[in-house]
């Protein structure tokens, strides 16, 4: 038993901040990877051809129905047996990116399905090719619907990066574990990163809400741009 003393935490703040940096790196890397994967997978899952639908469904169902921790272990301990050398941070980005890609693709797919059929027909009536209709009509509308759930999967994913501590990626959680072992003040250190994670996600959700309100949903430029590009009034 000892009394509360945060001095050691502040003395070693650089370790935690470096960990926060790595957490940020993993989050941004996984976000980019997840979005790059999610869009084609969403289109594949919506396609009429079973040849495209089957592999994408397999991917999505596999990554949505197994724990992230098991996926991380699979990539971190499984890939070296195939002769591929792994780096913890790269593996974390790949595993978390694939995981969040599966969730994102479901969100984007729902967004694509929510686009009004009449809008697509109208774009064809205006002489757009299927590609033009997808790029100029379907995608902006789908993105508008999908933005909020996408931001919430992103926040979940940021919390999920703490799982990467298990594969020795030295992000915030792992550096906290190491620090707790060094200075032997687990309560202070874990409560600091508890608050740190909360602040991080509150900030992210505030940014997401702000962007959604001002750029996307209500008074947004995108909505007006859409109206003028499609020619729908009201």
């Amino acid at each position: 038993m000892s009394s509360l003393y945060f001095g050691d935490v502040f003395k070693n703040a650089d370790v935690l901040l470096r960990g926060l940096g790595i957490t940020f790196l993993i989050s941004v890397g996984s976000l980019v990877l997840g979005l790059i994967i999610a869009l084609p997978v969403a289109f594949m899952r919506n396609s009429r051809s079973g040849l495209l639908r089957f592999p994408s469904s397999l991917y999505v169902e596999f990554f949505r129905n197994t724990p992230l921790l098991a996926q991380l272990f699979f990539f971190f301990y499984g890939l070296p047996e195939l002769g591929i050398n792994t780096n913890a941070i790269v593996v974390a980005i790949i595993a978390i990116g694939l995981n969040t890609g599966a969730y994102n693709s479901e969100v984007i797919r729902a967004g694509l399905l929510s686009v009004d059929k009449g809008l697509i027909d109208a774009s064809y009536a205006l002489g757009m090719s299927p590609l033009q209709s997808t790029v100029y009509v379907v995608l902006p509308n789908a993105f508008r619907v999908a933005f909020k759930p996408l931001s919430s999967t992103f926040i979940n994913m940021v919390l999920g990066t703490s799982t990467a501590a298990s594969v020795t990626a030295n992000e915030l959680m792992n550096s906290a574990v190491v620090l707790a072992g060094n200075v032997f003040r687990p309560f202070e250190i874990y409560s600091t990163i508890f608050v740190g994670y909360c602040l991080l996600t509150f900030t992210l959700s505030f940014i997401a809400k702000f962007a959604d309100y001002h750029l996307i949903s209500k008074h947004g430029k995108m909505k007006n741009a859409l109206k003028s590009s499609v020619g729908v009034s009201g």
Partner: peptide, 8 residues
């Protein structure tokens, strides 16, 4: 809701 379960 806003912190990882591991930390808790």
């Amino acid at each position: 809701r806003n912190s990882p379960l591991v930390v808790q």
